Computed example of a mutant assay.
Amino acid sequence: MKQKIFVYGTLRKGMYNYDLYLKDEDSFRQYGYIKGSLMTIRGKAYPAYITEGQDMILGEIHEVSEKTLKLIDEMEGYFGKGNPNNEYNKEICDIYDENNQIIDQAYVYVFNMDNRRNVSALENDIESHDYVKYIQEIKRNEKTYSIDE
């Protein structure tokens, strides 16, 4: 049986975990938004989604097999409902369109704010509310230009 997940970070199309977990499954269904906040995590190359806040976070709805979902659970540090060691909790959330209308519900990996290590690792708000765009901006800013003058 297929399960719907909403991805907002490294599992999005074009990102490295998409290629590892979703590319071969033809899982993409549509774009959407979740409400909350998207933040950077100190020392990590992936974002934290927290439910506090009203920002519209861009992401994608995918439909995946149980096998793929278990692999993603492992990658996301999800050990089971209510486990205090979870890096992310897996929760059913409303998914919105650009007009703020609910279009679906899906599993979302929510940063576990009950884990003290997680809370202390949060850094900055991703102001674009779009992790792919955020990474593209970083890459543009990291380009070095030689001065020929």
Rank of each mutant, 00 (worst) to 15 (best):
I57Y: 05
Y31H: 10
D94W: 11
K4W: 09
Y21V: 01
G32H: 05
S27G: 06
I92T: 04
A45N: 12
E149V: 11
K81R: 15
Y134K: 03
M113G: 12
S27Y: 07
N99I: 00
E63Q: 11
F6N: 05
D130R: 02
E63S: 14
K90W: 04
Y46F: 14
K4R: 13
E91T: 06
L58F: 15
Y46A: 14
N124M: 02
N83W: 07
M113V: 10
Q3G: 04
Y46P: 12
G32V: 08
I138F: 01
F6S: 05
R12G: 09
D148H: 10
Q54R: 15
I72A: 02
K139Y: 08
K133A: 14
E63N: 09
M1Q: 07
P47I: 06
E52F: 10
T144Q: 04
K70Q: 04
L22K: 04
K81G: 07
D130V: 02
I72Y: 00
I103K: 04
Y31G: 15
V119K: 15
N141Y: 12
G36I: 01
L122I: 09
R12N: 12
M113Y: 08
Y107S: 08
I41M: 09
G36K: 08
G43K: 10
L11S: 03
K133V: 07
Y46M: 12
N86R: 04
L11N: 01
Q136S: 13
Y96W: 14
Y8V: 00
H62I: 03
S128Y: 14
G53Q: 06
D130W: 00
R116C: 13
C93W: 02
I57R: 02
E123W: 05
Q3L: 08
I41G: 05
I61Y: 13
D114V: 06
N86L: 05
E142P: 00
K81P: 08
A106C: 05
M39A: 02
C93L: 12
N118Q: 07
E149H: 01
A48D: 11
T40V: 04
E123I: 04
R117T: 08
R29T: 11
N83H: 05
Y107V: 00
D19E: 12
S146P: 04
G43F: 07
N100M: 01
T40K: 01
I50L: 03
E74V: 01
Q3V: 08
R29V: 14
R140N: 10
Y131C: 03
D24W: 04
I103V: 13
Y33E: 01
I95E: 08
N17M: 02
S65K: 03
H129E: 07
Q105E: 13
E66C: 01
I34D: 03
Y78A: 01
I135S: 11
L69F: 00
K23S: 09
I138E: 11
L20T: 02
P84H: 12
L20M: 08
I92M: 06
Y21Q: 09
R117D: 15
S128F: 09
D73P: 07
L22I: 01
G32E: 10
I61V: 13
A121T: 11
S146M: 07
